[in-house]
Simulated assay, not measured.
Amino acid sequence: MTRKERQEARAERYRQFAENAEKRATAAFNASSAAVENIPLGQPILVGHHSEKAHRRALQRSNGAMMRSVHESEKAAYYRQKAEAVENNDNIYLGDDDAIERLEEKIAELTEKQERMKATNKIVRSKKRDEDKIAELIALGFSHKGAENVVVNGALFPAYMLTNNNARINAAKKQLAKAKSLATKEDREYEAGGLNIEECYSENRVRVYFPGKPDDEMRAKLKRNGFRWAPSMGCWQAYINRWTLDLIKDITKSNQ
């Protein structure tokens, strides 16, 4: 299963959680109404009357059910937000099957944006006639009204925007270089220090299989170095990098 497929499956699970919570909210709301359906609207508790205890119990059941309804409605909203967040997550991970292609596209888009901002500033700063500036900005992709506003106001892309965008380009290039490097390495499995190790470069993961549950000190050490327990696989895993691989060497030596 690809990361995209896992992402879609996770979003679907959240949507199902939301639907179930909405059903429980509806059921609780109906129970709240049913608890007081035989009590006339606005009827006060008749203190000392034989109906007092039953009236109070009915109100308690109604209030309790209404609180459950509110809680489940909030839970449904929470899971729907989680589903939307998962669906809208377009981050690029090195373990993605299309990581290299998407990173190359990202770099191209950011580079085009950088050149467009620089060209815009150059046009605005030039001593050409406003009409010529507007024409050149339109050629860059501005609407006529947008180009007029830029020229009339002398609007420039601030230096920090150019700096930040350039930093994003450099970061994406580094990520691309790593993705290409990982793509050339073969996955490997081996045993060391009584542990089974998987270096899964195709998924950018390193996994450690212990023969039993590690002690508190080892678990804390793993967590400090970016490892997390993966119940579905029965192992501790982390992203592959110099630090996680160094930790593997360290713990396998200490186990020998």
Rank of each mutant, 00 (worst) to 15 (best):
Q114N: 13
K118H: 06
A119V: 06
A119L: 11
T120K: 08
N121K: 04
N121W: 07
K122T: 05
K122Y: 01
V124S: 06
V124L: 06
K127N: 10
R129T: 09
R129S: 14
E131I: 08
E131L: 10
D132Q: 12
A135L: 13
E136A: 12
L137C: 07
L137H: 08
L137I: 02
A139W: 10
L140M: 03
G141A: 07
F142Q: 02
H144A: 14
K145C: 04
G146L: 03
A147V: 00
N149Y: 03
A155E: 14
A155Q: 15
A155R: 15
L156K: 02
F157T: 15
A159N: 15
L162I: 15
L162G: 05
L162W: 05
T163R: 09
T163F: 11
T163K: 15
N165L: 10
N165I: 06
N166V: 10
N166W: 02
A167Q: 13
I169G: 01
N170D: 15
A171V: 12
Q175M: 15
L176P: 00
A177D: 15
K178Y: 05
A179Q: 02
L182P: 00
A183R: 12
A183I: 08
T184F: 07
K185P: 01
D187S: 03
R188C: 09
Y190K: 11
A192L: 00
G194Y: 02
G194K: 01
L195Q: 04
N196L: 12
I197M: 07
I197N: 00
I197A: 03
Y201P: 05
Y201H: 11
S202P: 06
N204P: 10
Y209D: 04
Y209G: 05
F210D: 00
